[in-house]
Design a protein around this nucleic acid. Structure first.
Length: 139
DNA sequence: GCCAACGTTGGC
DNA sequence: GCCAACGTTGGC
């Protein structure tokens, strides 16, 4: 199983919005970047991801699960764009801020820090474990 | 709200 | 196929 990170501006789509969708989950549509799309194509059913609030918040607030494999993005006719569906699993007991990620020796090389523009990105098992530890939340 | 970094587009 | 121009993202 692989780990990922999904970024969203809470003004547009927040963790609370995601939670409100429940077990059915929601299409992660709107991605128009090949790297991000390729990451979604690589996802397997049951992969886990962090839910990160960009622009406002600047912190990881929850854990999501991939509940549908990559399929055409319903918000465009352009066949190049695909997306997965994700559902909220649980919130982090303590959100992990970008600031704390940057200052942590295990996490300072994360894609989140190194390529802040990539909206769907891979997370290594070591990074996953470290963030769950900081969040005081079951991995 | 600004702007640096980055990705995409399109003329040549 | 190069690269200048343009648009977008996201931290600050």
């Amino acid at each position: 199983m692989a780990y990922w990170l999904f970024k969203s501006e809470p003004d547009t789509w927040s963790w609370d919005d995601q939670v409100a969708k429940g077990a059915a989950g929601e299409e992660w549509h709107g991605v128009r970047n090949y790297q991000a799309r390729n990451n979604m194509r690589a996802m397997q059913f049951g992969d886990l991801g962090f839910f990160y609030h960009s622009r406002q918040g600047l912190e990881i607030v929850g854990i999501v699960e991939v509940c549908a494999l990559a399929h055409p993005d319903s918000t465009t006719e352009d066949p190049r764009w695909e997306c997965v569906d994700i559902r909220a699993m649980r919130p982090l007991a303590k959100p992990v801020t970008l600031e704390s990620i940057k200052s942590d020796s295990v996490l300072s090389e994360m894609v989140l820090v190194k390529n802040s523009r990539l909206s769907v990105q891979p997370v290594t098992p070591a990074e996953w474990a470290r963030i769950c530890e900081m969040a005081e939340t079951k991995a």
